[in-house]
Nucleic acid binder design. Structure first.
Length: 430
DNA sequence: TCTGGGGTCCTAGGACCC
DNA sequence: TCTGGGGTCCTAGGACCC
């Protein structure tokens, strides 16, 4: 029988902050989204205060002022590095682990003798805590969806010491009966109320429904969840080769009205997309831009257009991607609106080596040759930029981009240092 | 005053084919 | 009055995940 272990970092962003700021231990701590917009991670103490995921920061100001709550701006450089450390430790146990998100990974324990699985997981919990400072919970079960269920119990009950295993049918039934339907992986904010209205309030109630009812009510995705909850593997093990689309978008600290200002942001986002494409060894055929007014200000005129441009030849050079993005932006920009957010999305992505030029029969061979030469030069420039640039604050940029640090346009009033990735911000011990 | 960002997959419906 | 049938492919939007 298959066996998966889900390793889930507890309150990951908060735990990363605590690893270098022990004074946060035992306190209510919240990590804020980009722009210090809303809560995206909460310590257990913060959850106990009733703070919900996504709570706007301005609603938390009183708690902060009264000293009952600590906040930190998100520090993705730090979290990315801490994640890599945790995944590196896990990879020693299973080189083929599936990294599911920045704070979660699935290990395959099929080869580990059943009676040794729990001990192995306990040792991983201890090792990760000791080597990185990050507390993790591990759920072990015959399917990924059940491993998720198990991990919730591992987190909830201290007696498990961080590891919960669903290894018998009796335990599976018990766990499902104690799991609310909305807490099941794959049942979202739309599905849960619908199922509850149909009388399905727990995972066991769902499992007891007939297959065709599930298919009819929930589609093939729901059917997979239903199977997984019974212990039948229904989720694909294959990892995607590479991303199919890449999006870089941000909200702005202030609202932007002028095109000159907006195009600087769009150029930055496009440059980041190009950099991500090159890192993946991919090229994209389509470059899209969206701009959004502030949806939380309905009294202002709203405008949320999207425009994409199809490139003649798939590309990943900063020149090509930025050029197309600015063209798209100029087509959709309208004066008279206050823009709060924008983004660049590159789509129709293929591996760089698979991309071939498609010239039309009627194009002038001279022009084609000139285009190929230009392209080659742009690719060389991009390669040089990658060799020189620090991603978070690139030195070499196009003139179309803005000149300050990327983070300048974003509010980060409560940022902690990049303890592990920046020479000037290393932890100091006195 | 102030409300995140980055993905994947599925489905329904339209365009198109013979 | 009456207006094929069956299939594929693409796309936009929705639902879900963290």
């Amino acid at each position: 029988m298959a066996c998966f272990a889900l390793v889930d970092c507890n309150n990951f962003f908060v735990s990363c902050e605590r690893a270098f700021q022990p004074q946060l231990e035992g306190r209510a701590v919240v990590v804020l989204s980009n722009n210090d917009g809303c809560a995206v991670a909460r310590s257990n103490e913060a959850k106990a205060l009733g703070i919900k995921m996504g709570t706007p920061f301005f609603q938390l100001q009183k708690l902060v002022a009264s000293g009952r709550l600590e906040v930190r701006s998100s520090n993705y450089t730090l979290y990315g590095d801490m994640s890599a450390r945790v995944m590196g430790i896990l990879r020693e146990t299973d080189p083929a682990l599936e990294v599911y998100s920045i704070d979660e990974a699935f290990l395959h324990l099929d080869e580990v003798a059943p009676e040794k699985r729990r001990e192995l997981a306990l040792s991983l919990v201890r090792k990760i805590r000791r080597w990185t400072g990050i507390p993790v919970s591990i759920g072990i079960a015959p399917t990924k969806t059940l491993a998720k269920v198990a991990a919730r119990f591992a987190k909830r009950y201290a007696g498990y010491r961080g590891v919960c295993e669903i290894d018998t049918d009796e335990r599976r039934r018990k766990a499902l009966s104690l799991t609310e339907i909305g807490d099941v992986w794959g049942i979202g904010w739309r599905g849960a109320p619908k199922l509850i209205s149909l009388g399905i309030t727990t995972a066991s109630a769902l499992v007891e429904m007939p297959e065709d009812w599930v298919k009819k009510q929930m589609g093939v995705g729901g059917l997979r969840t239903w199977r997984e909850l019974q212990g039948i593997v229904a989720l694909d093990a294959e990892k995607p080769e590479s991303r199919k689309s890449i999006c870089t978008s941000r909200s702005f600290a202030e609202m932007i009205t002028s095109f000159d200002e907006l195009r600087l942001r769009v150029a930055d986002f496009a440059a980041l997309c190009a950099q991500k494409l090159r890192r993946d060894g991919s090229v994209a055929r389509e470059v899209g831009v969206f701009i959004h007014t502030n949806r939380f200000r309905p009294e202002l005129p709203q405008y949320c257009p999207f425009q994409s441009i199809v490139l003649k030849v798939p590309a990943n050079s900063t020149h090509q991607i930025v050029g197309a993005a600015l063209e798209a932006a100029s087509r959709i920009y309208r004066p008279g609106y206050a823009y709060k957010r924008a983004g660049v999305l590159v789509d129709d992505i293929v591996p760089a080596e698979a991309a071939t030029a498609e010239h039309t029969l009627f194009e002038d061979p001279e022009k084609i040759a000139a285009a190929v030469r230009r392209r080659k030069k742009e690719n060389q420039i991009s390669a040089l930029m990658d060799a020189v640039n620090n991603p978070s604050s690139p030195i070499l940029r196009l003139a179309a981009q803005h000149t300050g640090p990327y983070s300048e346009a974003i509010r980060h009033d409560h940022a902690s240092p990049r303890f592990t990735t920046h020479w000037n911000e290393l932890l100091e011990i006195h």
